[in-house]
Design a protein around this nucleic acid. Sequence first.
DNA 1: GCCAACGTTGGC
DNA 2: GCCAACGTTGGC
Length: 156
Amino acid sequence: MNYWLMKSEPDVFSFEDLKACIKQTEPWDGIRNYQARNFMRDDMRIGDLILFYHSNTNPPGVAGIAQVASKPYPDPTAFDKKSKYFDPKSDPKNPRWILVDVSFKADIVRQVSLEEMKSMPELVNMRALQRGNRLSIMPTTRSEFQAIKKAGQSSL
DNA sequence: GCCAACGTTGGC
DNA sequence: GCCAACGTTGGC
């Protein structure tokens, strides 16, 4: 079991939006960063738990808990000329961009803000909090996940 | 392979 | 809107 933090701008796709999806499952499309892609392609397993993080909002922070819901497969938006994620360099025979489906797992009672995360001694080494790290998908340790789950009073 | 220019992310 | 950080692109 691996643990992850995945960022989303709530104006684009929020944790509430995920809950409202059919089957509460949604393809995590539009990732156009190789490191983030590699995490999905190589390291994610169905059932891995995800801290769903809201970025570019006030305040930013963890809004809920999701899980990996599919094996990796090619991101269809890369081949969709109408999509803003269309990538003419991605060959359908050798897809460049890979995603997984993500599904709702559990609510947290209170959001855990970035400010609060920075104040938590359990998270001093958390990768997502290191300066300059803009990756939208990052591995998280079990203890970091548990600390945030506890701070958010999740029922999980 | 180097690196300058440019684009994006994301907190503030 | 600003800007630091960092990824990508493309000329050479």
